[in-house]
Design a binder for these strands. Sequence first.
RNA 1: GGUGAGAUACUCAAGUGGCCAACGAGGGCAGACUGUAAAUCUGCUGAUUUUUAUCUUCGAAGGUUCGAAUCCUUCUCUCACCA
Length: 400
Amino acid sequence: MIQTALREIRRGTAEIIDEARLETLLKNFFEKGETYTVKAGFDPTAPDLHLGHTVLLQKLAAFQKFGGRIQFLIGDFTAQIGDPTGKSETRKKLLPAQIQENAHSYKSQVFKILDPEKTTVVFNADWINPLGAAGMLELTTTYNVARMLERDDFDKRHKAGISISISEFLYPLLQGYDSVHLKSDIEIGGTDQKFNLLMGRHLQRVYEIGKEQSVLMMPILEGLDGVQKMSKSLGNYIAVADEPNEMFGKILSISDTLMWRYYELLSTQTLDAIEALKAGVENGSLHPKKVKESLALEITTRFHSEEAALAAQEEFERVHAQSEIPSEMDEFTLEGPIWIAKALVDCALSPSTSQARREIKQGSVKIDQNKLSDEQYQLEAGEYILQVGKRKFARLKVTQ
RNA sequence: GGUGAGAUACUCAAGUGGCCAACGAGGGCAGACUGUAAAUCUGCUGAUUUUUAUCUUCGAAGGUUCGAAUCCUUCUCUCACCA
């Protein structure tokens, strides 16, 4: 039992520091029913969670199954500093009302994965503000500049002559102090957080709280392209709030290699079950598309519902596998007769008439499922279904 | 503060008076192939119903010239080295 738990906890992790202690915690849970705390920090900025973020959340959920109590920390104080990312951009200060609102929307998204019964949401301004100048000063005496510069990001910037604000040094210290205050047993975060996570151990030792947290680091999830990390700015993400059809389609569009990665980091299937799937694909008894579909179903179900996921699958089959038109699409009404290229622009299927012309020339434009080759084509009054490429559709009503 | 280098389309990057709507690469879009995969191959990738044409674009504004991304002037910004 404990071995299975350990395997699940280890699953997908990039690195675990002080694994022995982690084992002890699990052992105490299984043998004596003792619980322990697992801390994870989040920004109070508007949560637009994508699957990359949920990797961490899934791991927290796994801990909840094995006696972990989650300390879901919202860094409302530390957000004022901004974690050093090399971009050295001073953050906008968030108003308390905004932070509350963001925290609220966090909860609605996060509790789709986490068990609220075993989760405590905390705000670090609650204990950092009372520290005062004296407490803050004391905190700074626990570390020195040379060691601070060991942090990869600081080191690079320092060597490159890029400015590092003194306040940025406080970020790791405060994050570490959070662990002191919360007496966390374990802290988890992305691999990019290593320095900050280790600071928690250091400060717990300095402040003599009688334990040093284990640290568990999760890798950064690759985006849809399979190369770069999933992020909103790169546009290769699947948002938790994505519509079922979109979510399903996006997951099915990832490569087979990436699919296994997603299985490991995102699925709640056991490792044994995943191994079985892999074996099935390898010996040819299982079609990779089927495997990908069940992943898409699982994830879409998690964030929406089983009905929505099944509906998305059906829709997907209809539109793509059998190249039929989707059941829902944007509708437009235009005055006719209208030149086809103009209509494509007005229906937002093409960005410009030049582009629309090219698309017609390339044979990617279809009217009512029929390929159009005449770029001078005029649409008379009537109703049409316009299509550009495989996935852009619009229903157009032309009036006289 | 001083000296030097640079700013070209989504990104990187060629181009130093006409052959430039601007090489090439990446990205994106489309077509073929497929499992809407991936990989591969092909085409397109400033705008415009003048489409073997016209107009606008190479940090900004002026200027020289029949003609400027390319030359000159001023300005703005970025980077490097020195202090």
